[in-house]
Amino acid sequence: MKRLNLVFVMALVVAITGMKYSASNIGGAEIMQKVYDLPTGDDTQGELTMTLVNKQGEQRVRKLKQYIKSGEEVDKKIMFFMAPADVKGTSFMSWSYSDGRDDDQWIYLPALKRTKRISSDGKGDYFMGSDFTYDDLGDRHPSEDNHKLLREETINGVKCYVVESTPKDEDYMYSKTITWVIKDVYIGLKRDFYDEDGKLMKSLQINKYEKIQGFWTILETEMKNHSKNHKTKMSFSNVAINKGIPDSKFTERSMTLGK
């Protein structure tokens, strides 16, 4: 329930329930824990459009439907690829566990007509050619980083905490991240990612968020890759929360039917 897929797709769907925390004497670790602990709905569904823009300004568009269901021990997610035509009918399912073991992941390729279990080791790979790695889209626990509150700052009239997070694992793909967290709300509004040489590599910006069915929901976001001069825009539509997605949505049958 508490496992919030902060960035990923509908995982960007962030819920707040009116919790208020005192800003005084709060530390970086506590802020990031509050971001991580924000409750979400039991399930979310919606459509995602990803627009990939290269340095020449050429665009490629990917569309998919996604369903997420949170449980006490496992969060289940299934995605159905809608466009472009050559990937239509492909589906991807992952089960993430609260005990920290590796995710289970499967892919269904319509050309092979078979569901295949795949390795979950490729977290540094880019998702569908976008500027988001699988790890960016996942649910990184705050205990994996050391956090430091750098300052408070106002962006476009929104008051934020600015928190620097340094990974405990030296081999992690980023040397550090800096996150702008909206005060009192505890949504990450912006995040900068630094490469192993300490150079700014990517920036994530939340461009639009609204309250849907009682939950704050992020609807538009953009990831810029500064080193590649490439960016990915994500927009969400037809978002629905707590609609009671059945367990049967997260099965091999659902993957093969594509719905």
Partner: peptide
């Protein structure tokens, strides 16, 4: 050929009974 084109369709009746993750 691509594997989609190697497989030949067969005229059949297929019945699946699905219960949770069992089929």
């Amino acid at each position: 050929p691509d594997f989609e084109e190697i497989r030949v369709g067969v005229t059949s009746v297929k019945v699946n009974y699905i219960k949770g993750n069992h089929s």
